[in-house]
Design a binder for these strands. Structure first.
Length: 650
DNA sequence: CTAGGGTTAG
């Protein structure tokens, strides 16, 4: 009876029954203990353990495993030191705990200290080395071990797979005296990871014992090799699915840029009644982040809270990113503060989030408190810190960090750091310094680096440098239409219309396709997308009427539509006309009409916001008294009371 | 207690 409740994870019923039992033997205590332990209730498990009148080795194993599996490794270690007559299962658990922490030296010490070793002890040690790329050590132990079973062999195969040594992995696999589904799945995953889907498929078809994991391996493999249609075929065909299958296909669609389909599948999954696991939460939240589906994201957040997941690492980080990328930086900070187990990704996400919103000071504050907490920053952190400085115009501080990060944190500057610095110096008008830094950097500049210089040249009207940068970029990335647009805008700024025209012809000759600009906004759970001069939206009359009205008000406020700033993507005669109808403006207008007063209007654009719209939206925020948050392809703009969080500096 | 499938920052 008690074990039935525990098996069904009905722990409150189990507890009630347990409390009413007239007599409890050690088995009943252990049953409840393991029930708590396996469902993450470590404190309850510990309480039961402490109250037990007598304990056997199963009880000791239970509490030790509870600590190890729920991330309380320090408690496990201390408990382990309190007595010496552990049974072999506990020794093995403890060793596995060290292995999971990648503390192989400690694991090995335990392995040598233990009174007797069984095959699990050997396997744990072998797989520990194998998983950490120490194949020589793994191989040595493999040879030394008295017997080998299917675990031992599979651990070796897995190790070679992880190290990318597929030929060796296959050699071992072919020698195995006994093969099970896990061994097959291991080698198949190896082939998918080195993009050999043909060989993976061959083995998948050949294996006699396919299980759900085999299908999941193949689905992930196809998805990650850009063959989402094949992935979908398998997903539709598979005899049974689990939550990992759903996570794999959702992530597949999301990563191949089809966020809408990913979210449709997520909704289908909920209708199907499938349980949600951490991966499903993680990749769904990440998809919401990509298309800034804040309403849906919040609903997923709600389900997450209901499901009672701890905000640990993966899920919490995805949630944090969702709020950041949906432009809801305050909520992001709430999530951040409430996360008990922050890891490096958590800190980096928050810093980068603030940086992209133009809140440089806040980003630096988080960076400071990260160091107070004793977390070592890595290269990604520094990209965030430098771009925070760059987006907020903090030249001196940024330069200081860049110069000291080597000795201070042991981080060698990568191309991205140089790009940040060139961006930082360039924006601040120090074009010569930026160019000099570029000459002195220990890498060949890539297109992104030249792009930063081109952007800065445009901002400060330096044609010579701009042309030089543009030329390099056209060589490296002839299809990068954004850069043609930048250079063409530089000419337009200076009124060099013949050069603008030349650029346009150049692009036509080269067959460069401009990426069409569009913007979208989420209203009542539905995404509304607008393109330039949109005329398909059912509410278009109201939208254009509002735009007309705003236009009149803008003129009264002293705003002059600056045709000199115009546009890359239109012919001259269309200029004045097109200004009104830029997608970001239309989306903002629609937001003003539909989003209740007092709530921010959040718009997303796939390209960089155009300068004229940026100006206009500043005024609009003042006229209508609304907070407008615009995410463009590089950062966020918070428009409020006539000014923008980017300080007109983006 | 040991082996496989998924998910987070730029």
């Amino acid at each position: 009876m008690l074990s039935g409740y525990v098996k069904n994870r009905n722990l409150s019923a189990a507890r009630l029954l347990f409390d009413e039992m007239p007599q409890r033997d050690v088995v009943s205590w252990n049953t409840l203990l393991s029930g708590y332990a396996q469902n993450g209730y470590v404190d309850e498990a510990k309480e039961i353990f402490d109250f037990m009148p007598n304990k056997n080795s199963i009880s000791w194993n239970g509490i030790l495993a509870a600590f190890i599996q729920n991330g309380r490794f320090e408690s496990a270690r201390q408990l382990f030191e309190t007595k010496s007559d552990w049974d072999i299962v506990s020794w093995n658990s403890m060793m596995a705990g060290y292995v999971r922490k990648k503390r192989l030296v400690d694991a090995k010490r335990l392995f040598e200290r233990m009174p007797e070793r069984d095959i699990v002890s050997w396997n744990t040690m072998i797989s520990g080395y194998a998983q950490n790329g120490e194949m020589l050590e793994a191989h040595k132990l493999f040879e030394e071990s008295p017997t080998q079973d299917v675990f031992t062999w599979t651990a070796m195969v897995s190790g070679y797979v992880q190290s990318g040594m597929l030929t060796e992995a296959r050699r071992i696999f072919d020698k195995m005296p006994e093969i099970n589904a896990v061994s097959w799945n291991t080698i198949i995953a190896g082939y998918t990871q080195c993009k050999r889907m043909d060989l993976a498929r061959e083995l998948f078809e050949a294996m006699p014992c396919q299980n759900i994991s085999s299908w999941n391996t193949m689905i992930t493999g196809y998805a990650q090799n850009g063959e989402i249609t094949c992935a979908r075929n398998l997903f539709d065909k598979m005899p049974q699915r689990d939550s990992i299958s759903w996570a794999a296909i959702i992530a597949g669609y999301s990563q191949s840029g089809n966020s809408e389909e990913a979210l449709c599948i997520f909704i289908e999954m909920m209708r199907d009644g499938e349980n949600m696991n951490r991966s499903v939460f993680t990749c769904t939240l990440s998809t919401c982040a990509d298309i800034a589906a804040l309403e849906l994201g919040k609903q997923v957040h709600g389900r997450l809270v209901k499901a009672g997941y701890e905000m640990g690492c993966f899920v919490g980080n995805a949630l944090l990113k969702m709020y950041c990328k949906c432009g809801s930086i305050e909520e992001s900070y709430d999530v951040f503060e409430g996360m008990p187990g922050k890891d490096l990704v958590t800190w980096n996400t928050m810093i980068i989030g603030y940086a992209k919103h133009g809140f440089g000071k806040e980003a630096l504050r988080v960076f400071e408190s990260m160091q107070v907490k004793g977390i070592q920053p890595d290269d990604v952190t520094m990209v965030g810190v430098l771009s925070a400085c760059s987006h907020s115009g903090l030249v001196d501080i940024g330069t200081e960090y860049f110069q000291t990060m080597g000795q201070e944190y042991g981080i060698t500057a990568k191309p991205q750091h140089y790009t940040c610095m060139i961006d930082l110096l360039g924006r601040a008008g120090c074009l010569e310094e930026a160019r000099a830094l570029m000459r002195n950097m220990p890498f060949e500049p890539d297109a992104a680096t030249w792009g930063a210089l081109l952007g800065a040249s445009r901002m400060h009207g330096n044609t010579k440098l701009g042309e030089e940068a543009a030329e390099k970029i056209f060589e490296m990335e002839p299809d990068n239409s954004g850069m043609y647009v930048l250079l063409s805008n530089l000419y337009a700024d200076l009124g060099r219309w013949s050069d603008v025209k030349k650029m346009r012809m150049f692009m036509r000759d080269k067959g460069v396709q401009k990426v069409p600009g569009y913007s979208w906004i989420e209203v009542q759970n539905k995404i509304h997308t607008f393109s330039v001069g949109d005329s398909v939206h059912p509410e278009k009359d109201r939208i254009y009427a509002l735009l007309e009205y705003l236009d009149q008000r803008l003129k009264k406020e002293g705003y002059i539509s600056a045709t000199k700033m115009v546009l890359h993507d239109v012919e001259e005669e269309e200029k004045e006309h097109m200004l009104k109808y830029h997608s970001e403006k239309i989306a903002v207008a629609y937001g003003i009409l539909t989003i209740p007063a007092g709530r921010p209007i959040r718009v997303i654009k796939n390209l960089r916001v155009c300068e004229d719209c940026h100006n206009a939206i500043k005024y609009i925020s003042k006229i209508v008294g609304r907070l407008i948050i615009l995410r463009d392809s590089t950062r966020f703009h918070h428009f409020n009371c006539g000014s923008c969080s980017c300080g007109d500096y983006w």
